[in-house]
Design a protein around this nucleic acid. Structure first.
Lengths: 170, 170
DNA sequence: TCGAATCTTGACGAAAAAGTATAGATTCGT
DNA sequence: ACGAATCTATACTTTTTCGTCAAGATTCGA
């Protein structure tokens, strides 16, 4: 369970854009500010652009701009654009090893850990979405308090999935 | 932000051990139960053993056993043994790209995102530790309720770190 | 219109992670 | 004592991720 490079740097670069306040910032500027290579930032911004988070202006005095104000960009959804979910639903029971010949999931009865990951994902994502880019730009923000104050909402509200295991046969 | 293979499979295999209730389970048994190769499970159990979570008995009727009862194994610490933390403190400012020639962190003033990741890490880890292996073994557990009921504790209690950013210079 | 500055895209190589293979060490049962 | 069943350790191959490179497309300014 790790923050990927793309998540980390994508977020950093987007923060730089957010600092620019409407003014378009260019790849070389951002790259220099973060100490990254220009092509790498270009790749990251490609992802962000195709996700509709930023706008690009081509040509001589071009650059990138945020589409929405920083107040409306939650970290949960942002990180989801830059990386994968904690747990990749559609491929979960196929892609890894540990499947029977017929391709079915060989695991504890009904793939029970799935429920755990789903809950965790929903929860982390939801919590992160309570923090916006704008929050990260304000100096001297106490994150813990920030989140706590915004987390009185119903993250656990829905009735989650069940876990059940079948016993190990020896 | 993703669950790594080692975390997923390590947890699954450990669950199998927990099912065995004190009886030693062998590599071939576990591997067959999870549909994994024997050497792979061996590797995973190597990690778990060196972390002191399981005991190995060598020789003819050997196998592996949990050192502690499942009630005392929290998922947070377990996953930490199997994978890396969300955010790798000591290497954070060196290992990635984006550093100045002198090796110092080139980032926003005082490496501000660090505070975010630390808070998140602490928080996810702490929450996961409220769930034990034993909880996952009980059939029909509603994870969301489980966590909520155990989370009235002071996960947010300590005063977290500050965030601060220096403005983008163009 | 030309050229410089910019974004866009896909292919490529390097590094890390995942999983396998193999040889070896230990113990038990007969 | 021997052999079968087990764990242990290391090296290897494959796959994925990371980051770079190079060629192309677009726009502005002079």
């Amino acid at each position: 369970m790790k923050i990927t490079s793309q998540e980390e740097y994508g977020l950093r670069c987007l923060l730089r854009l957010a600092c620019a306040e409407g003014q378009a910032a260019t790849l070389p500027e951002i790259a220099a500010a973060e100490g990254l290579s220009v092509p790498y930032v270009a790749k990251l911004f490609g992802v962000l652009r195709q996700a509709g988070l930023i706008d690009s202006i081509r040509g001589r005095s071009g650059g990138y701009r945020l589409v929405k104000p920083p107040e409306e960009i939650g970290l949960g959804s942002l990180l989801l654009v830059l990386g994968e979910p904690l747990f990749d639903e559609p491929t979960y029971c196929q892609k890894h090893a540990g499947n029977a010949e017929d391709g079915n999931c060989v695991r504890h009865g009904d793939c029970s850990l799935r429920a755990l990951w789903q809950t965790l994902e929903q929860w982390v994502r939801g919590s992160l979405d309570q923090i916006t880019l704008a929050d990260l730009l304000r100096k001297e923000t106490r994150i813990t308090e920030l989140v706590r104050s915004r987390l009185s909402q119903t993250i656990f509200a829905d009735s989650g999935p069940l876990i059940s295991l079948t016993p190990l046969t020896r």
